[in-house]
Amino acid sequence: MHKFANPTFFMKIANAVFPWAAGLSVLCFIVGLPIALVTSPPDYQQGETVRIMYVHVPAAWMGSMVYAVMAASSAVYLIWRHTVAHIIARASAPIGAMFTGLCLVTGMLWGEPMWGTWWVWDARLTSMLILFFLYLGYIALGDAFEDQERGDRAAALLALVGSVNLPIVHFSVEWWNTLHQSSILSMQGFSISTEMVVPLLLMVGAFQFYYVAVLVIRLRAELLAAKIRTARFNLAATG
């Protein structure tokens, strides 16, 4: 693991991964969207609103997954002080926040016609909203400190503490009575028809590869920001 702590080596791999991730994301969208929107069947109960699921569920999974990446990277940063780990967490946060926000909004758009309400304070919806606020808090905290390193550590600690919310998001529908349905993916496999699993997985793939591709772009920006700081410092010292 520590070999990857070298930013130059790490970016070499990231840059090599980038065209593949970007290409596969576009490919998944091109194949997946027509299936999700046109050829896949309506649901026997929900009718055409089932199509919202092909955005909502991948967004929800990404919201949790990106946070897990953020929390794990933050732990690596706090323990081994690898700056690359912190930069991965920092670059991931806005992407994860977008996915979580998208999950919440598409969920409302499904809830109003199906449940009969935009929002309820059940365990699943509430814990997902908390996840969204954790992302926002992390983003805000990273820039709130005068001292860069203290801000980094505070943000990393928040990401780590907030990880307690992840199992709650995941298991809320099993532990407590919720209005939200149980997970469509369990140990027994998918509880939805194969014709619906195909577009769902394609959209999941599209979102996954999108995350990797945009993460690489954001990593480049973050590393450039660090280089700019050093260059400015040197310039001020010599000039």
Binding site: D43, Q45, M114, W115, I192
Partner: peptide, 18 residues
């Protein structure tokens, strides 16, 4: 005073349900 519908996690086309 309020009634909400709860949907389960089983999604399928109408033909399959039949």
């Amino acid at each position: 005073s309020d009634v909400l519908a709860k949907h389960d996690e089983n999604y399928m086309p109408p033909e399959v349900a039949e």
